[in-house]
Design a protein around this nucleic acid. Structure first.
Length: 567
DNA sequence: GCCGTTTTCGGCCCGACTGTTTTCAGTCG
């Protein structure tokens, strides 16, 4: 059983416990779930070593529950909680303004279990009669159900980021704003985003709020106060804006960037040192001892600065305290993109156009890796076309002096691990990316063997999108990642961090795990058009979230060093 | 339910905003 599945069960327990009076029990379960979710070792191994209770937030009781889940695949305690209050908790929680207490109240008084029940009872005006509810609550529920149904899930970072940047631009243009920052999970570059958080420094808070809630992109105002407002945007996403004065900028940014878990941990550390941390600063008694910059706040808390991408309370606070944080790969460190498609297969721009865009970015080299092989996917090139494209690329290379084009292909890995292009041809290419595009349902053993067979082929340099997950669409296939990482090292085959917004594969957690195995990675866009080349920033962000340094990423190397690595 | 370099019991992050209230609980991040 995967760590993630066990964490999921404990999160579910926490959800149900939220409906009860003691607020600390759900917190305890949530903390334990978070620990397991981001553990890089397998939880069953930790258990075999008898170390469950050494993990943060896991004590005797929860350790027993984890053992039960590992042994039986389920948790009796959760089944009992579900029986007691049999509600579709996630669905009801997605309605703005409904929380655990109200959900419980609605179930006990009106038997509401799901969105359908909720809508029915609201329409029949049953809700306004409940204690603590009124006409307005009922009206809000009806409005918010609509939104929850339409835009229930989180959205891809690649989709939300440009929207947030547009908001920032418009707010930046105002005379009354001194600074505007995108904070929250976008600043941390999390792969999916729940809402947009914007922080404004101003000495005219009221005017900024008035402007904000009447912006063209705003379709609905959820709440509005003197320092904080929440709106809905026409793109189906919510946006929070908070205003602060310049002297608390660092504390505000730190608080508003999160993550929530990181904030809680930092505030706990503050308390331990007889200090108090909030969005207005770090306080000793009534005196503010830091607050203008994040750097000084971290410093006063006794630790090094933590990059936003790392702030998930996954060990970065301990590392920062011991001054052992890695120096993350930078957004300008990538010297070339090693998976790019053109019109020769399923791309929408010509070879020349893609080269021109890459050159404008300032890359030292790129690899053109159109689909190749017998497979009909994506207009794959056959042997004859591959040879023709080679000649074209040679011609272009001879006419360019600022950028070198590596001649590559992306080949498909068959269900038996074999590639559908002959080795005789592959060995003449500069670079071969091998990826799985079908047959995802094979069991763990088979898929793992399939990838290992491909990696053992000495012509293969890179495994493209190694787990083939698609965020919110398709789970990663079952894979023995420990084995894959080991073979990756042994065969000098590099695993890709694919930058497509819905892939980001390897994921942050798997990147961290691979680095602990000593793997080296490559960050590619898999671009199918000129504008997709900019997705490289999403890949870099994901690598940073996985604690990757420049040394861990092969396409930060000069061309000379890279070619040496491939031979 | 977890945890401890003041504690094995008594804490557990902190503040803004709303709606339904007459001082606050619930929600949100």
């Amino acid at each position: 059983m995967e760590n993630k599945e066990i964490a999921e069960i404990l999160y579910n327990v926490a959800d149900f416990l939220e409906m009860e009076d003691n607020p600390f029990r759900p917190k305890a379960y949530r903390r334990a779930a978070h620990t397991i979710e981001f553990l890089t070792e397998n939880i069953s191994e930790v258990r075999e070593e008898g170390n469950l209770e050494k993990l943060p937030g896991i004590g005797k009781n929860i350790a027993l529950k984890i053992e039960e889940i590992l042994d039986t695949g389920s948790l009796q305690y959760l089944e009992e909680l579900r029986k007691e209050i049999p509600v579709d908790f996630d669905a009801l929680m997605s309605v703005e303004g409904l929380g655990p207490k109200k959900i419980k109240h609605l179930y006990e008084e009106l038997g509401i279990k799901n969105l359908e029940d909720l809508e029915n009872q609201a329409k029949r005006h049953k809700i306004r009669r409940l204690k603590g509810m009124g006409e307005k609550s009922e009206k809000n529920i009806l409005e918010n159900i609509e939104f929850a149904k339409k835009h229930g899930t989180r959205k891809l970072l690649g989709y939300v980021l440009p929207i947030a940047q547009e908001l920032k631009t418009q707010l930046d243009e105002l005379d009354i704003t001194d600074d505007v920052k995108i904070a929250g999970s976008i600043r941390r570059r999390k792969e999916t985003i729940g809402d947009i958080d914007i922080l404004v420094i101003t000495s005219h808070p009221q005017k900024v709020m008035d402007f904000f809630i009447t912006m063209d992109m705003v379709v609905d105002v959820i709440n509005k106060g003197p320092s904080k407002s929440t709106v809905r945007l026409n793109e189906g996403i919510e946006c929070d804006l908070r205003v602060f004065k310049a002297n608390v900028f660092g504390a505000a940014l730190m608080y508003f960037t999160g993550s929530k878990e990181t904030n809680v941990e930092l505030r706990r550390i503050a308390i331990k040192n007889n200090l108090k941390l909030n969005e207005y600063g770090l306080f000793k008694g009534k005196n503010r001892i830091a607050g203008e910059s994040e750097e000084e706040l971290f410093h006063k808390l006794g630790m090094n600065y933590i990059e936003p991408e790392l702030r998930e309370n996954r060990g970065e606070i301990e590392a920062a305290t011991e001054k052992k944080l890695p120096e993350l790969v930078g957004y300008h460190d990538i010297k070339g993109d090693l998976q790019i498609h053109t019109k020769w297969s399923d791309g929408s721009h010509s070879l020349e156009e893609m080269v021109q865009s890459a050159s404008q970015i300032g890359y030292e080299y790129i690899a053109l890796t159109d689909h190749a092989g017998s497979l009909k996917i994506a207009g794959s090139m056959d042997e004859k076309r591959i040879k023709e494209q080679m000649k074209e690329i040679n011609k272009i290379n001879n006419g360019m002096d600022d950028i070198t084009i590596l001649n590559g292909v992306e080949v498909n890995i068959g269900s038996d691990g074999k590639l559908d292009v002959e080795n005789d041809l592959l060995k003449d290419l500069d670079i071969v990316v091998a990826s799985i595009h079908s047959g995802f349902r094979q069991n763990e053993d088979k898929i793992t063997k399939r990838l290992i067979t491909a990696m053992a082929n000495e012509n293969v340099n890179i495994i493209g999108h190694p787990t083939s997950r698609k965020i919110q669409e398709r789970q990663a296939y079952d894979l023995d990642l420990d084995k894959i990482f080991k073979v990756s090292r042994e065969t000098n085959t590099f695993l890709e961090v694919n930058s497509q917004p819905n892939r980001l594969d390897l994921s942050d957690v798997n990147i961290k795990k691979s680095l602990e195995h000593g793997c080296k990675l490559v960050i590619n866009t898999d671009a199918h058009s000129q504008d997709q080349l900019k997705y490289i920033n999403l890949g870099i962000a994901t690598a940073r979230r996985g604690w990757a340094t420049k040394m861990d990423i092969i396409n930060t190397l000069s061309l000379k060093k890279l070619e040496k690595l491939f031979n």
